[in-house]
Computed example of a mutant assay.
Amino acid sequence: MNHLKDVPLAKAYLLLNHGPSTIVTCEHDGVANVMAAAWVMPLDFDPPKLLLVLDRNTWSRHLVEGSGTFVIQLPSRQQAELTLAVGSCNGGETDKFERYGIATSRARHVEAPVVDGCVAYLECRVVEEPHNQQSYDLFIAEVVAAYADERAFSNGRWHFPNDDLRTIHYQAGGAFFATGEAFQVARD
């Protein structure tokens, strides 16, 4: 976690704009969970907000509704196996942190663990929207802190120095692809 650098909150959306798979951590009353989530997207700039689809049948949903907070993490390619594992079992039935030997630290501004070794983190507080949450499993959250591994994200841009630090995208059935090469197009 020594390569982490704060990302200005107004630029936090840049961490998610390329549509990576994410890991969500949450905690309520001393009970924590970790899960994978593919449906996370930026929503607003100032204050920064994001959307998270959190199925009502997940253990994480229970914890997020209790605490009102969660952390979105962007795993790297070397964490694809972990991402699949935490997305494939129920945290209400097993302690995933213990089962998979997940190293964690504490979030900076919300009460939750963070998975060590991810390339970016967005700490979030839920914006209560009961209709959206109950009808669509859709959570709106304000990003209260954002930080990223400066080896892979700096000056508002992703730049992957090696394949291990690339973010990942989940397709289905255990199939992922890694974020590709960045390129720029000049505007007229």
Rank of each mutant, 00 (worst) to 15 (best):
A107N: 04
D137S: 13
I168S: 12
Y121A: 05
V34K: 05
G87A: 04
S135H: 09
N57F: 04
P161V: 10
R187G: 12
I23K: 04
L14G: 08
G30T: 02
Y121V: 05
H28L: 01
G156Y: 05
Y100R: 10
R106K: 11
P20N: 10
G30Q: 02
F153L: 02
F177G: 02
F177M: 02
N90R: 04
Y100H: 15
E81I: 08
H169S: 14
N33E: 02
P161Q: 10
A80M: 14
N90Y: 11
A37T: 00
S21A: 14
S135M: 14
N33W: 01
Q184Y: 13
G19T: 03
N162P: 01
S154V: 00
H159F: 10
E65H: 00
F183L: 11
V110S: 09
K49E: 15
V40A: 08
E111C: 04
T83W: 05
F176Y: 15
V34Q: 03
A146V: 08
N162C: 15
F183E: 09
F177P: 00
G91R: 02
S60W: 01
V53T: 13
G87D: 07
G101E: 14
I72F: 08
T58M: 06
E128V: 03
L82H: 11
L54I: 10
G66Q: 03
R106A: 10
Q73R: 07
R61A: 09
T22D: 04
R99A: 14
H131N: 02
S21P: 01
G117S: 11
I102Q: 14
N90V: 00
V115N: 05
V110F: 05
E129C: 10
N2M: 09
V143G: 11
T179E: 15
F70G: 08
K49P: 01
W59T: 03
D44Y: 13
F183S: 12
T94W: 02
N90I: 00
H109E: 12
F45H: 12
F176D: 12
G180I: 01
D55C: 00
K5Y: 04
R187C: 09
V144M: 08
D46A: 06
G30K: 00
L50Q: 11
T94K: 13
G66E: 10
T22V: 01
I168C: 11
T179H: 15
T167I: 13
A120D: 03
F153C: 01
S135N: 10
A107T: 02
E128D: 14
E81F: 07
R151Y: 06
Q134G: 03
E98T: 14
E150Q: 12
E123R: 06
T69E: 14
G174L: 11
L14C: 06
S105V: 03
Y136A: 15
P130Y: 03
H169C: 13
C124W: 11
L165R: 05
P20F: 05
V64H: 06
E81M: 06
D116F: 00
Q79K: 07
N162G: 14
V126I: 13
T104A: 09
H131I: 06
L84E: 15
A186F: 05
T25D: 06
A148C: 08
F139A: 13
Y136V: 07
E98R: 12
F97S: 09
Y136W: 15
D6I: 01
I140H: 12
D55G: 09
G156W: 04
S76D: 07
R166A: 05
D163Y: 13
G117K: 07
P161M: 11
